[in-house]
Design a protein around this nucleic acid. Structure first.
Lengths: 261, 261
DNA sequence: CAATATGTTACTATAATAGTAATCTATATA
DNA sequence: TATATAGATTACTATTATAGTAACATATTG
């Protein structure tokens, strides 16, 4: 087995983490068999790994044997979240812009074909605009669109392969060809526009967070406006340069940190 | 190896997770050797596990080879935090009390000899009272005191064994005997008092979150008051029953969920 | 240019895991 | 009440992954 690259990769750890990753807000509870089937790990090994996670406090078992996250997962989650230096780094950048311009700002990182909310500041005029922390529906969001527009064509095709768009508002694009067209114009435009496509009262513009060395997109920032007070026209005239400045700052942070997709 | 209990425990997974747990807000960056020494895992195995975590995106390596948390750790942290059902369960309980009584409320879970902030609501009058999310200094906090008061005597001794109290305010107890005495009276009293011992302008009272079946303490809740507006006397006369009600509700939640320490 | 510290790779004995299959346990069904 | 079914747990080994030693490589420092 000499020169084997896989010698320095632990499959067991990979499996254990993949099990832990099956738990989250949308699926707080799972059964052993379920885990075994989803991960493709055979039942005994699944049992061993789950049992380990239970003993360490990452999972816990109810009376009916269903599994849930344990306190240790909660505290580790805490630390992994707040110990992530990009989060700590983008906070002051967004705070500064927020206090200077009084605009709602959002930022997110790519994880697979989802966006993970990184840090956000909201103006009170954007009432009840509580976005999910893990975002699907990239096609209907400013941050999602600009990410899609900057993806490698292979990745983009893979995204479209099993896409089933939902009509979230009357303005949501659900026709695949229309979405493709929108992505193309987003790419040439350099920033994305979400005109009430995700939520009725909200217009957003988005720009990419790029790793400037690898030229790959790793996330996005967006500015969000209440459509009652702002027209898309005004926004494009007055706020694009601010958006792009913010995106550039964030990209520098990302690049220095060496985050890649 | 028949009948071996340890057959269904994965040491590799334990080690991998212990490495991931070395990263957090206080120590965002570590070296390979450092990790190997702290965990007691030999260098090659550490290398293998770290390499695995890097490939999976949980860690990343800077140009100078120092290691930091990666985007995958951030997103998993997100999910582990928000997918924790106790967090989701205590939110409405605390929110309700907060809106009805207009008092700052905090809750936390035990992790080792630290408290992990679970959920909190703050009144604007408690300005700049931004508590840490992971709390040491149990001896100087209302939630810490009531947890200590409910610990098994072995655990409590273990806590005192390497305790080096810091004088955080002029009122902080730093003499071990005084702290022991305070813990004893807290135990008989049934709730804890923190009279400007952690922060100058803040008085808090705390009650335990208990697993009512195992009779073990798993966390605490506290009510926090600005000392300018409230005297300890008033607080004890008017808010203790609210505190205890809240703690009971939280304890039921914990017990139903089967959280144990 | 040594000297030192740290990270990476090669090699193999040993210990851990994977996988099969049997057994147990709870719940539903006849 | 017995029986069927699904899911969880345990027993048992062949196989394979990991631990550990030690050599090698690559900065970093004086």
């Amino acid at each position: 087995m000499s020169g084997n690259q896989e010698q320095y990769f632990s499959k067991t750890l990979e499996k254990g983490l993949s099990i832990l990753n099956l738990f989250g807000r949308e699926t707080p509870s799972r059964s052993l068999t379920e885990i075994s089937i989803i991960t493709g790990i055979n039942k005994t090994s699944t049992y061993r790994l789950v049992n380990t996670l239970i003993q360490l406090g990452y999972l816990r078992k109810s009376a009916d044997k269903s599994l849930r996250l344990g306190p240790k997962a909660f505290s580790m989650g805490h630390e992994c979240f707040h110990g992530f230096d990009i989060y700590q780094g983008i906070k002051p950048i967004i705070d500064k812009t927020f206090f200077e311009h009084h605009i709602s700002i959002d930022s997110a990182l790519i994880d697979g074909y989802k966006l993970i909310s990184l840090y956000r500041r909201e103006m009170p005029n954007l009432v009840s605009f509580h976005l999910p922390l893990v975002m699907d529906e990239l096609y209907a969001r400013a941050m999602g669109k600009i990410v899609l527009a900057n993806l490698e064509s292979d990745d983009l095709e893979h995204y479209f392969a099993d896409l089933a768009p939902k009509k979230l508002t009357p303005h949501t694009l659900v026709d695949i060809d229309e979405i493709r067209k929108d992505i193309r114009s987003t790419r040439t435009r350099g920033y994305s526009i979400n005109d009430k496509e995700y939520m009725i009262g909200v217009i957003s513009i988005g720009a990419p967070m790029m790793n400037l060395q690898t030229k790959s997109v790793v996330g996005a920032v967006s500015l969000d406006f209440p459509s009652k007070e702002y027209s898309l026209d005004t926004i494009e005239k007055q706020h694009i340069s601010l958006l792009l400045t913010l995106a550039t700052e964030a990209s520098h942070l990302i690049t220095t940190a060496g985050i890649r997709h």
